Amino acid sequence: MNGTPPAGRTGPIPSALTAGSAPAPVLQTTGLGRRFGGLQAVSDVDLSIPPGRTIGVIGPNGAGKSTLINLITGHLTPSSGRVLINGVDLTGARPWRVAHAGVARTFQIVKPFRGLTVCDNVAVAALFGPSPARTPTAARKEAAQVLERVGLGGKDPLTTAELSVADARRLELAKALALQPKLLLLDEVLAGLRPVEIDASLQLIDDLKKAGLTLLVVEHIVQAITAVSDEILVLHHGQVLMHGAPDHVLGDERVIEAYLGRRYAKRNRT
């Protein structure tokens, strides 16, 4: 499909895509692409995530990983293709419409509300999500519960400037979870963390999986993304290089050559 699609089209996914007994995907992209002038940042990405599954996305810097998230969540408008959330076509819809459809995301560079406390950062999401809290007091109560869940219990009154790198990333996740999403997209939530902090974050992601949340996780730490993903998608020059089970993908010669390197392959074969 070529040309810019109409913004925010709605309607059920065609019946041919939902035929059969398998549950309809929470997220489906078909032919998804984005061009910036002469640069094709993302090209012809087909992706389908059933409920409760976790897809890991890896690839070199500049491969199009964050651009893919931006296209799904409405922060960029696709140049081609479609984005369907729970069977509804939200291609080109504004970010708040995508959020109200049950989609939340984190940002690679954390984006707190710097004039607010940790608690109020999360309460904003609770107030303006698809199932909003009725009052600011109720929103703060919900925020406190989410902060406890992500390991920030007791840090409610702090300013965002008082948080460590690890805690700032937990706050980013808490804001997303306060929207009560059905689909959560994580953009390098482990970046800059120490090993013990990575372990704690992976445990949290695993808990979210067990709770039935559908996840798309972009990450550079291969061992980490292997631990949490049911499938891995590899992007290279904006295109899907490979998509499949983690062991199969990480053992593929094309993936080793384009991303992992021979040293990784040798170390993991011994």
Rank of each mutant, 00 (worst) to 15 (best):
K210H: 12
E172C: 00
A200K: 13
R149I: 06
A200S: 12
L216V: 13
K141H: 15
Q180M: 04
A200T: 11
V222D: 04
E219F: 14
Q239T: 11
L127K: 09
E219I: 11
P130S: 10
P181M: 03
D206L: 13
P195G: 08
A178C: 10
R140Q: 04
C119A: 10
A178P: 13
D206S: 14
P181L: 03
D156P: 09
E197D: 11
V122S: 02
A191V: 09
L215I: 07
Q203G: 14
A133L: 11
A125N: 01
T226Y: 13
P195K: 06
D187N: 03
N121R: 02
L152I: 04
V165Q: 12
T226F: 12
A178S: 09
A191P: 15
P157V: 07
L241T: 04
L216P: 08
P136W: 11
G129Q: 06
L204Q: 07
L235P: 04
A125L: 02
L184E: 04
L241R: 08
A176E: 00
L204S: 08
V150W: 11
A168I: 05
V118Y: 01
L183G: 04
V218W: 15
K155A: 12
L147T: 02
A227Y: 09
A139F: 07
N121V: 01
V150G: 07
A126G: 04
I198F: 06
T159Q: 09
F128M: 05
I221R: 07
A161E: 13
V217T: 13
K210V: 15
Q223I: 04
A200W: 04
A125Q: 01
L179Q: 04
H236N: 14
V228D: 01
V122F: 00
F128G: 05
L190D: 04
T135Q: 10
A166G: 02
L241G: 03
P195T: 07
E219H: 10
A143C: 11
E231H: 14
I221L: 12
S201H: 11
A161Y: 13
L184A: 04
L235H: 02
L216D: 01
Q145M: 14
V165N: 11
S201N: 12
I221H: 09
V124G: 00
V240E: 14
D206R: 15
T159K: 13
R170T: 00
E142Y: 08
Q145S: 15
E148M: 12
M242R: 15
D230T: 14
H237D: 05
L152R: 05
D230V: 14
R134S: 08
R134G: 07
L241H: 02
D199L: 06
K182P: 14
G153H: 10
L184H: 09
R169S: 01
E162D: 08
L163C: 06
L202P: 15
K209Y: 07
T160F: 01
E231T: 12
H243C: 11
I221V: 15
H243K: 09
L163H: 03
K141I: 15
V222F: 05
A166I: 07
